[in-house]
Design a protein around this nucleic acid. Sequence first.
DNA 1: GGGCCCGCAGGG
DNA 2: CCCTGCGGGCCC
Length: 292
Amino acid sequence: MANNDKGRVFGHIPGTTVGQIFADRVELAKAGIHKPTQAGISGSAKEGSDSIVLSGGYEDDEDFGNVIIYTGAGGKEHNAKVQTFDQQLSTTNLALARSHLEGYPVRVSRSLKHKDPKSTEKGYEYAGLYKVDDYWQEKGRSGFYVWRYRLIACDEQPTQEAPDEPSNGHTEARRVQTTVQRIVRDTKIAKRVKQLHNYQCQVCGIALETSAGLYAEAAHIKPLGQPHNGPDVESNILCLCPNHHVLFDNGGFTISDDLKLIGIEGELKTVTRHTVDLAFIQYHHEHYHMKR
DNA sequence: GGGCCCGCAGGG
DNA sequence: CCCTGCGGGCCC
């Protein structure tokens, strides 16, 4: 699946399977599932988080199997058990927030002891991919603020507590199967275009500032997929805010050969390192703007 | 079982 | 480069 410049891999690791058991954190790291040998969250503020581990080290965790309420890192003295100060939305906590914003799937592994407190076995089980459905801060049991993340399983996988929902046949299974692809909003190429524009909309110049960082959307000019079959290349992508993305995809405006906007005021904002292909612009103009 | 300290590998 | 972190082993 998608990976980025530094080689951080999002999604399943080839050669590993959901349910696979690893002897310890070093084995998890060697397999490429979770690289840090101690930290519970793998990731960086800019790239997002690709993996977490549940070890039972944080009292505010809640594990329902397919749904996990995970606690951010920090707020403790070195290797302490209890929170003694507020957690910050930085480093790995910010990475998980970024994964929510970008829709990245996060690998989840559980210590066997965490999966079943009665278990005397050691080791970690790879539980598959989850999406970061939401994140927020609240006071934990200690009385200090913690960051919390609701993770929802992408893969069909056995639950620990909740019984399976009544089956309604193959439609549900198909939905689950397609979830992983659907939640990832960006290809590597799309992300690069957004970075070139500093996440500023090429129409209005606004970059949305969220607590997880800047947000913009990559809009394909000649759409991907049948029957258009536009390519996923930089010259076929615009960096837009969500409002102008919707307008562009639905005929609210289009672009002329000299990059003037048609349908709304202004002209397309450009940067030197990113040029659009006029052929794609003409395709959009021809097929998506009301003729009169 | 709890405390302590030794770790490594990643991230800032 | 220094610092941190949902380990882990060892000692009592």
